[in-house]
């Protein structure tokens, strides 16, 4: 452990990231360019999130990492071990105990509180990128608040499919100013973006950082006659019976067998330990 500087990055790099984080915090939803570093993991594995986590981490932190809600996937396990090795911080799988949570594509089911920080791994930070490939143009569009194209995209969804078919990375407007990509979280999670915790977004390959202070006004884009709807699978969790959590569909055999389980593994475990049993679940062994 002593072979590394605290939290891996050198101090000058951390200062650069920290300055970007503060400007991001002061201009909610605006993408601050930063000099993203090579990290000892490939792009797409959370290099942006890791750099943000390294810049905010203190030795007293308790660190949690989730990948699509799960603590036990390769990506989550390796990032957790990375900071155990380089920062010596405590780690946990329990949302309630964590002070810094790095996430790929989910917001935990449990409400986050003041004092906690949620760090998102972001692949493509620019919400307009698939509509306009030029960075020069999209930057101008943000400057001029020219977001008509995004509404055209949502409108075309309706014209083609009958409703807004965008189901993840659903664009939001922050404090009535910047349109922001909330990272590829399911739109089920969008209503939680106004939470009490600090939210930080890091895109390593794209070299952008952005942020949401607590209690920020975050509105999912929609139309008066097609209001935003946060959808989920119309089912209860088969393990813990939860009816309000976001579900993963798991194929269980080659004969069409399937089950729905909470995507948030810590939420599901907590419920099962409290005695809740779903349709396909078994009683938790105490």
């Amino acid at each position: 452990m002593s072979a590394y500087n605290f939290a891996y990055l050198d101090e000058q790099t951390k200062r650069m990231i920290r300055r970007a984080l503060l400007k991001g915090m002061a201009i909610p939803g605006y993408q601050v360019p930063f000099a993203s570093r090579e990290m000892p993991m490939p792009y797409g594995w959370g290099t942006g999130g890791v750099q943000v986590s390294a810049a905010v981490m203190v030795p007293e932190d308790c660190f949690k990492v989730i990948d699509q809600g799960a603590d036990d996937t390769t990506n989550a396990v390796s990032i957790r071990r990375f900071f155990q090795a380089t920062a010596g911080v405590a780690v946990t799988e329990k949302t309630a105990e964590a002070s810094v949570i790095q996430t790929r594509h989910r917001i935990p089911e449990r409400d986050l509180r003041q004092g906690q920080i949620l760090v998102y791994q972001v692949p493509i930070p620019e919400p307009l990128r698939f509509l306009e490939p030029s960075e020069v143009e999209t930057r101008k569009m943000h400057a001029l608040e020219e977001y008509g194209l995004m509404h055209v995209k949502l409108y075309e969804d309706i014209a083609r499919h009958g409703d807004i078919s965008t189901s993840y990375a659903y664009p939001v407007k922050v404090e009535g100013r910047y349109v922001m990509d909330p990272s590829p979280i399911p739109k089920f999670d969008n209503p939680k973006l106004g939470m009490a915790a600090i939210q930080l977004f890091g895109a390593g390959r794209e070299q952008r950082i952005y942020a949401l202070p607590p209690h920020t006004d975050v509105v999912s884009l929609d139309f008066e006659d097609y209001p935003f709807q946060a959808g989920k699978a119309d089912h209860d969790c088969d393990l813990c019976g939860a009816g309000s959590s976001y579900l993963d569909e798991v194929i269980t055999d080659d004969a069409g067998g399937r089950m729905f389980v909470c995507s948030d593994t810590d939420f599901c475990r907590e419920r099962r330990e409290a005695g809740h049993v779903g349709a396909l679940g078994v009683e938790a062994v105490a």
Binding site: R15, R18, L22, P59, E60
Partner: peptide, 10 residues
């Protein structure tokens, strides 16, 4: 500096 920055961020 990590602890101080955390306070500055909050």
């Amino acid at each position: 500096s990590a602890r101080a920055f955390r306070a500055a961020l909050e």
